[in-house]
Design a protein around this nucleic acid. Structure first.
Length: 378
DNA sequence: TATACCGGGCTCTGCCATCCCG
DNA sequence: CGGGATGGCAGAGCCCGGTATA
């Protein structure tokens, strides 16, 4: 990588001297080609590609501390552009409190950011600021997800999204949460967001609900990632929940506007796989289909657990002497991390706690409640 | 007073595919 | 044909405490 940068620098130096002295009549690409062939045995193809890059731009980026290699890998076309605005971008973001390294990182991760004009950035920032209120919060999002901020050049669409989401009854703080945690929502085309809203609306109506607006708002606030999923995925998940758990329309509706919303954004294959895995794990332990279904229904977030994690937790409990029935009765015990579960079990063992007689209720208490309880038991 | 029940708070990107336009 | 804009995908949990209830 350093070698390539070196070649580029050397080529630039040579070009400068060529321009000054006019001793050579080589074209820039040819000269670069020559330099590259001399110092590194590159293929003609890579030289051809490189020769199309804007050397001045590439050098500028190198000087700015941008990881050009990764930028090239991500969006090679940007490096070939004749007009870019990296200096404007730097000035703009630094004025907002970003460091030089921060901006270099942004460009390395999302090169197209340098194609945005300062006017565009100002407008977009203004709209974001209308939702997030402080520059530092916006910078935090940018750092996490440069793409979400820079991918679209369509500020009008961004404004349409704000209007649209507000019209659904989402409050300013709902919007702030959405923008902070699921910024892609706002770079989606408004029509795409509308499609999801329409779909959720239809689901509610077809399940016999009577307040679709409220339902949509509930889902979108309960699970802020729904709008960055495809309708296909959400639909598949909703249908899967109904058929696999054998729910009536009303039961499904209740599930969706409650704890079920949490898992709507899961990769569909993942839900299916985990569901099968839960059955595979519990059936041999003597559980019936109905028991398993109601177990999942009472704590659908278990579908979120990887098969390995699920198995580990169940095995950990069984090894401790807990009966399967005790687990079925208290699905929320799977809520605790495996490490918390194991360390609590160990501590309780030390003081002679009998899980079979007293149950697993202690395992999923909050930390403070657990400590209080533990003190008393001691 | 202890436990059960329940809802809420945190929390999502970076890559690839496809379409469309100049 | 290349590149910008956009859509879609895989991947993966834990903790807390208010309030009802026994």
């Amino acid at each position: 990588m350093a070698a390539r940068g070196l070649v580029q620098s050397m080529a630039t130096l040579l070009l400068k001297s060529v321009r000054c002295s006019c001793l050579l009549r080589l074209s820039e690409p040819t000269l670069l080609n020559t330099v590259a062939c001399r110092f590194l045995s590159w293929t003609p193809r890579s030289i051809k590609r490189l020769s199309k890059e804007n050397i001045g731009l590439v050098n500028n980026l190198v000087n700015l501390g941008v990881d050009v290699q990764s930028a090239r890998k991500r969006q090679p076309g940007v490096l070939k552009k004749m007009i870019t605005h990296e200096d404007g971008l730097i000035g703009f973001l630094q004025a907002k409190g970003a460091s030089k390294d921060f901006v270099a990182g942004i460009i390395s991760r999302y090169p197209r950011s340098i194609t945005r004009t300062v006017e565009h950035l100002e407008k977009k920032w203004e709209i974001w600021h209308g939702i997030l209120k402080s520059d530092s919060e916006i910078l935090k999002v940018l750092e996490r997800s440069p793409e979400a901020f820079f991918r679209s050049s369509n500020n009008a669409n961004l404004e349409k999204n704000v209007t649209f989401l507000s019209s659904l009854g989402l409050t300013p703080s709902d919007l702030a949460r959405l923008l902070a945690k699921a910024p892609r929502t706002f770079s989606n085309r408004m029509e795409l967001n509308q499609q999801m809203v329409d779909y959720l609306h239809d689901v509610h109506v077809s399940l016999g609900g009577e307040n679709a607006e409220e339902f949509v708002k509930l889902i979108l606030t309960q699970n802020i990632f729904v709008l960055i999923q495809s309708v296909k995925r959400v639909k598949a998940n909703i249908e899967f929940l109904q058929t696999s758990l054998r729910l009536s329309d009303k039961e499904l509706l209740n599930l969706l506007q409650g704890i079920g919303a949490d898992i709507l954004d899961l990769c569909h294959e993942y839900i299916k796989r985990n569901f099968r895995h839960i059955q595979l794990k519990l059936l041999p332990l003597g559980c019936t289909d109905d028991q398993i279904n109601s177990f999942i229904l009472r704590y659908p977030a278990m579908l979120y657990l990887s098969p390995k994690n699920f198995t580990n937790k169940i095995d950990c409990l069984l090894k401790t002497g807990v009966e399967v029935e005790q687990i079925l009765e208290r699905p929320r015990v799977l809520d605790v991390s495996i490490s918390t579960m194991a360390s609590r079990i160990a501590r309780l063992h030390q003081i002679g706690y009998n899980f079979q007689s007293f149950g697993v209720g202690l395992l999923d208490l909050s930390k403070t409640r657990f400590e209080v309880k533990f003190e008393k038991l001691q």
